[in-house]
């Protein structure tokens, strides 16, 4: 039984061979229901995975292209060392722009912790210098050495220690999404295998009669495989459609909503859930085929 010929068979309507398996039964309803429910969940797992991927990319890109120099120096030397740092940065390949944050900007950064009336000028608060990198980036080790020579109080923070856990978390979330997809597929396969085994067990008489009149295992298995694959595709198509509708009805991505409002598909990503019914069909095909041959192998 080749996969290609059976796939072509599936595209045809019900044949006389299909009719030998009774239509009704709990196994039939179970297959459609399980496929539908699993496809619905798969749409969300897929959406989660894609959203996590986008988030990881965004965080990675945003943090990777900016860095900060923290300059600590006596008040009398602060201005001179700031200019020294900016001069070094101007001459550093890979630095697109650099600027020292104003007192107001620094006050805004500290406001969540110290309140609105913080006298920044009177406090030994380090001066922050923001660096925007070119896409190629700069040589952090070389820059640190030059800063140590020109402005000893300057410390370069290239955000690596902030970026890594964030990106790792997003990547882990993306992985969890794909893992969920795999688990959903495995659960679908297990449920369809059980349903197929139940159908095969309840159709022992059909199988006995078929063997008696000279039907080959392939013929009998095909009748069950076609029936279950069609049911799985039908159920999964309905589940995926409902899942896509539910995702479409989620609130649009908004800055203030953060990650939760970004859960969904974008552009061509909307085509991906359409693969779920096909995956369900392939899963049902193999699950039923293996169950059918295992059952038939016990007969002669």
């Amino acid at each position: 039984m080749s996969f290609v010929s059976d796939t072509l068979d599936l595209l045809r309507g019900e044949t006389k061979a299909d009719r030998v398996v009774p239509r009704s039964g709990q196994a039939a309803k179970l297959t459609v229901a399980v496929s539908g429910a699993m496809a619905f969940l798969a749409v969300f797992a897929l959406a989660l995975s894609l959203a996590s991927g986008r988030l990881a990319d965004r965080w990675s890109a945003a943090l990777a292209q900016s860095s900060t120099i923290r300059l600590s120096a006596p008040a009398a030397e602060m201005e001179a060392q700031t200019w020294a740092v900016l001069t070094v940065l101007e001459q550093t390949p890979g630095v697109d722009s650099a600027r020292a944050l104003s007192d107001d900007e620094q006050r805004a950064l500290l406001e969540p912790w110290f309140g609105p009336d913080l006298p920044v000028a009177d406090l030994p608060v380090p001066r922050l210098i923001e660096i925007i990198e070119t896409p190629e980036g700069y040589d952090a080790t070389g820059l640190r050495q030059r800063l140590a020579a020109e402005a000893p109080g300057a410390v370069l923070d290239d955000h690596t220690r902030w970026r890594r856990p964030l990106v790792a978390a997003a990547d882990r979330l993306r992985l969890l999404g794909w893992l969920s997809m795999a688990l959903i597929l495995a659960s679908t396969a297990a449920m369809i295998t059980l349903a197929a085994q139940a159908a095969l067990a309840s159709n022992q008489q059909v199988i006995r009669v078929m063997r008696l009149v000279g039907a080959r295992d392939v013929y009998i298995a095909r009748a069950f495989v076609r029936r279950f694959t069609r049911r799985a595709i039908t159920g999964a198509a309905a589940g995926a459609a409902i899942g896509m509708l539910a995702v479409a009805l989620l609130p649009r991505a908004a800055e203030e909503g953060g990650f939760l409002t970004g859960l969904g598909f974008q552009g061509a990503g909307w085509l991906l859930p359409l693969v779920i019914p096909l995956l369900a069909g392939v899963t049902a095909f193999w699950a039923t085929r293996i169950a059918a041959f295992r059952t038939l192998g016990g007969l002669r």
Binding site: R211, L212, V213, G214, A215, R216, D217, V218, L296, R300
Partner: peptide, 13 residues
């Protein structure tokens, strides 16, 4: 098993 099935097509039971 396939040959058994084929052979049964020549036997009426």
């Amino acid at each position: 098993r396939d040959r058994v099935a084929k052979t049964r097509q020549r036997i009426g039971v």
